[in-house]
């Protein structure tokens, strides 16, 4: 399966002032340079580039993993888009994934910024809270899935118990098609630790003088938040939106565990396919229905889609702080 690589070309640094190149060392430097990046390069070629190119080739074949692939040209692609007998839930999986992304990404960013502001505001124990809020990120996906299955339990779940306190009736979260995506997005927001840390770094880099100037100009906390903090954090937000969308479009582990964790349940993507994430759909065709060719085609469709979305964001979103 192709995992998109967002490679950032490092800005070329001009030779620093006062550093003189010693003649005759260039070639050896070159060699050492290659040696130093060799491990990363070998990893990249063997585990990313080669599989990606192989997947591209297999996407033009019909391949069951066991026998020799048969070249079918563009048929996998046209069938995926137009043959709803062969791939009845292809469009549904796209719809589910887009909905999930639209809900999960903003929710995650809001949760991350909220947590970062709180941690930034407290004087004591911020290390402890930072650790606690980061824990969901380092928890194994399988454990996260199992825990949230209990939390969302329609009878004994903590989520319903808490909502019950404010008079909201019990919900059957993971088994009501309309509630599946909000429920999944909420888990994603709970796991916002990495975004929180990045926001925290962004907050720390806002110069104190700007805040003070705003206070002197008579800006209240709300005004300061919207007129100073949000604009100053714009580069951070841009980065988090771009990477967040890429991650959300590829959501898999959580959905897989949530809807199959019982062991005997088979993974068909939740009630009425309401949780059939695109990558789960790829997985089912690749490994459950032995249609690796079609699965590779789906991976490439995703890759192209992610590239387009990312390009559009770079083109049309404000990236600079103001």
């Amino acid at each position: 399966m192709a995992s998109p690589v967002v490679a950032q070309r490092p800005a070329e640094t001009p030779p620093g002032p006062g550093r003189r190149r010693r003649p005759g060392v260039g070639r050896r430097d070159h060699l050492i340079g290659w040696l130093l990046i060799a491990p990363a390069l070998v990893y990249f070629i063997i585990f990313l580039l080669y599989p990606a190119l192989a997947a591209l080739y297999y996407s033009f074949t019909e391949w069951d993993l066991h026998s020799a692939p048969i070249w079918v040209g563009l048929q996998n692609y046209t069938d995926l888009f137009f043959d709803d007998v062969k791939y009845p839930h292809f469009w549904k999986s796209i719809q589910v994934t887009l909905q999930y992304t639209l809900v999960a990404v903003p929710l995650t960013l809001i949760a991350a910024l909220g947590q970062a502001l709180l941690i930034n505001a407290i004087r004591r124990g911020s290390n402890l809270f930072r650790l606690l809020l980061f824990l969901p990120v380092v928890t194994a996906e399988a454990a996260v899935g199992a825990i949230w299955r209990w939390l969302y339990d329609p009878q004994y779940g903590l989520v319903n118990a808490v909502l019950g306190l404010v008079g909201i009736p019990r919900q059957n979260w993971l088994n009501t098609p309309e509630l599946v995506i909000p429920a999944l997005a909420f888990i994603a927001a709970w796991q916002c630790g990495i975004s929180m840390i990045i926001y925290l770094a962004g907050l720390k880099s806002i110069p104190e003088s700007i805040r003070e100037a705003a206070v002197i100009d008579g800006a209240g906390p709300v005004q300061r938040f919207f007129k100073v903090i949000v604009p100053m954090l714009r580069p951070t937000t841009f980065y988090l939106v771009v990477t967040g969308i890429i991650a959300a479009l590829q959501v898999f582990g959580l959905v897989y565990v949530i809807f199959s964790g019982g062991g005997n349940r088979s993974v068909t993507g939740g009630p009425e396919q309401s949780g059939l994430a695109y990558v789960l759909h790829i997985y089912l065709y690749a490994f459950r229905y032995n249609a690796m060719g079609a699965a590779c085609a789906m991976s490439f469709i995703l890759l192209v889609f992610i590239m387009i979305i990312t390009f559009v964001q770079f083109k049309f979103m404000k990236q600079e702080a103001s």
Partner: peptide
């Protein structure tokens, strides 16, 4: 050979449509 796919992708959703009243 396609039985797992038929089971998961066609029959399962059909059962669900009826059970959910759709």
């Amino acid at each position: 050979p396609q039985w797992i796919q038929i089971n998961d992708e066609i029959i399962a959703p059909a059962l669900e449509s009826a059970l959910s009243g759709k």
